[in-house]
């Protein structure tokens, strides 16, 4: 099955003086991506720029409206994702536990649909 592993973290962890944390986490992500590639389970993924760079398009009552900012203003923001091909949820969870997080954070594991 294919799963998207969606990483939610507090962006403050990487701002300002925490620039070094960002470098470290990127190095760790590169290493993980390489390992998953070698294991033959990586299907895609990317890091995402911070939520303040996001623009959200909302369709409502047939009208489109743009607004500045991410879909949801939450403390933890979607910061990147992996797409992996593994046999089951337990295996996906095992990959999720290997994802580097700078501090507290969440990884949402979602199966993709067939189409």
């Amino acid at each position: 099955m294919q799963y998207a592993l969606l990483i939610y973290e507090n962006e403050e962890l990487y701002r300002g003086d925490n620039g070094r944390a960002l470098d470290e986490i990127i190095t760790a992500h590169v290493a993980l991506a390489k390992a998953l590639e070698e294991e033959g389970i990586l299907r895609g993924g990317s890091g995402l720029n911070t939520g303040d760079t996001a623009t959200t398009l909302r369709k409502s009552g047939g009208q489109y409206a743009l607004h500045d900012g991410p879909y949801a203003e939450a403390r933890e923001q979607l910061g990147g994702f992996y797409l992996v091909e593994v046999p089951d949820l337990d295996a996906a969870m095992a990959v999720a536990k290997r994802i580097p997080l700078a501090g507290d954070g969440s990884v949402e594991v979602r199966p993709t649909t067939d189409c």
Binding site: M1, Y3, P87, D88, L89, D90, A92, V109, P111
Partner: peptide, 14 residues
């Protein structure tokens, strides 16, 4: 069914 929960008895680590 949709999340792909495994039908195996988990290993000791779990």
């Amino acid at each position: 069914a949709q999340a792909g929960v495994s039908f195996e008895v988990p290993g000791p680590e779990a």
